[in-house]
Design a binder for these strands. Structure first.
Ligand code: MN
Ligand code: MN
Ligand code: ZN
Ligand code: ZN
Lengths: 143, 143
DNA sequence: GCCATCATGAAAGTGATATCCATTGACATT
DNA sequence: AATGTCAATGGATATCACTTTCATGATGGC
């Protein structure tokens, strides 16, 4: 699946006439092999030790590119920072967010999705996307 | 219900040893008689014509106070501004947000809430709160 | 290799929110 | 009504997370 995303990104880049660079390769590698919900700064700091020559602006722009290419998605969990998560073709999930340690867990629930569609229909809305987040204490922090 | 919230706020204020001021009265009145999902700036601009002596910082701090007092809640709908909505005792609702005109509609759905509890239990989470937002086109904008 | 473009990164800009501080106001006590 | 104390106010400033600018460097089609 890392392979698939690298390929998808390469395709997107050539379609748009954009160039392949060392920085973009490094950032993509690092993003794909990291936590699923990463802020710009977290990724930048992670990179800095091995690649002190990569600037914050490049990480910022490259993550935006990933989102445009459809291999990442911007998310807001209310901690003041935009987070980027991995996107897999045709997959959808929602989130459980620990308010103490920041841990983020993912879940899928078809029944909820179906009920959402019904709500939208009742109100005459045409749904494009949704966000469902459950905030509380994770199993570890409850103890 | 305006009465109830004013009373609740007055009680909160005296409990905390905070003072009653003209500005706070005006801001509370204006908040209670306005749209249910208002940004700081919107409320500030609404006030300015009648009360040009009320500063932005006071509106900002007073809305925070409302949230602490439990008569308002901070919300983020992704338009870059924090919005404050009215909170009624024991009431909960989620939102349909129109991505074209910004219209916000509210809904309640017990079945979804119940399923959320089940999801949380499965993952060992202790839920404190949640947010569910359905983004898309409202009935008017679909046409 | 040439060169039109695109990419990079340090620095500056932006916009919403948050805080500072000198002054004013509320209110309990004379 | 005057005083004293401490909270409240609002204009100005600071902060924070992006976002853009611009001079310089790299890419890749020819
Ligand atoms: Mn996720
Ligand atoms: Mn609402
Ligand atoms: Zn936790
Ligand atoms: Zn609409």
């Amino acid at each position: 699946m890392k392979r698939a995303k690298k390929k998808a990104f390469a395709e997107f880049m050539s379609q748009r006439g954009l160039k392949s660079t060392k920085q973009r390769d490094i950032i993509l590698d690092s993003f794909l092999s990291s936590d699923r919900h990463l802020s710009i700064e977290e990724l930048y700091l992670k990179l800095r030790s091995k690649h002190p020559n990569i600037g914050y602006a490049t990480v910022y722009r490259t993550l935006k590119l990933f989102a445009e290419a459809g291999i990442a998605r911007e998310m807001q969990f209310g901690d003041g920072q935009t987070r980027y998560e991995h996107v897999s073709e045709g997959e959808h999930h929602d989130h459980l967010v620990c308010t103490r340690c920041g841990h983020i867990e993912e879940f899928e629930n078809e029944a909820i999705e179906k009920l959402q569609d019904e709500v939208a229909e009742t109100h005459g809305f045409l749904i494009e996307r949704h966000r469902l987040e459950l905030y509380g204490l994770c199993a570890t922090c409850r103890k």
